[in-house]
């Protein structure tokens, strides 16, 4: 019995798929190519092996993900993580929230912001810039999106320029995508109870 984790945490859980991932031994040439499996690199996560069922999508997804989260210029990496976290909290993706809260804390060398968000939720006491960023991410992540001109005005008043706002739109939206894979196709569990 493995009981999924239901509370937000920075302690990154194990991800247990709800479908059977692609078996590496039976993978097609196209799947192996997308998985970037080579004789010296045969370690592939259950998550990536699950996504290998849709190999055309997997192939384009990783470079896009990396560009949005890590390309130089524009918004800082920590603030992009805050956009990712806002989306992940709306969609209640425990796994994504853990990974990106942890990255935020590492980049900021402080757990203060993510401690507050996990303890007090969306109404946590944040500085004006983080407040504007988090509020925009939460609003954009609703269905239908609830972000308005006043959210953008708040971002500009907090000192964000258009390039930074564009990166916030991209990182928040990207987690609308990632959450719908991670939270939908698997469960967050603790490694010692995951059976492997």
């Amino acid at each position: 019995m493995t009981k999924p984790i239901t509370k937000f945490t920075r302690n990154v859980p194990h991800w247990q798929p709800r479908v059977v991932p692609v078996d590496l031994a039976e993978a097609t040439a196209e799947q192996l190519d997308a998985l970037q499996v080579t004789p010296s690199n045969t370690k592939v996560s259950a998550y990536v092996l699950t996504l290998a069922h849709d190999v055309e999508s997997l192939k384009v997804r990783s470079p896009l993900f990396n560009a949005i989260m890590y390309d130089k210029g524009g918004m800082s990496r920590a603030e992009r993580e805050l956009g990712a976290l806002g989306a992940s909290m709306v969609n209640h993706c425990i796994y994504c929230a853990a990974v990106h809260a942890d990255r935020h804390a590492q980049l900021e060398k402080s757990t203060e912001v993510t401690d507050r968000l996990f303890r007090d939720g969306a109404r946590a006491d944040l500085g004006p810039r983080d407040r504007a960023i988090f509020d925009f991410a939460v609003a954009l992540s609703q269905c239908p999106p609830q972000a308005t001109a006043s959210h953008v005005a708040a971002l500009k008043a907090a000192g964000l320029d258009e390039a930074e706002i564009l990166d916030l739109i991209l990182s928040t939206s990207l987690f609308g995508w990632a959450n719908r894979l991670m939270h939908v196709l698997g469960d967050p569990v603790r490694p010692d109870s995951a059976g492997k």
């Binding site: 954009l140 972000a147 706002i165 916030l168 739109i169 928040t172 939206s173 990632a178």
Partner: peptide, 17 residues
């Protein structure tokens, strides 16, 4: 579904910008 969630929000965000 996941891609659409992304694209829809990029479109909505860009329109606001």
């Amino acid at each position: 579904n996941a891609f659409l969630a992304y694209q829809i929000r990029v479109v909505a965000g860009l329109r606001l910008l």
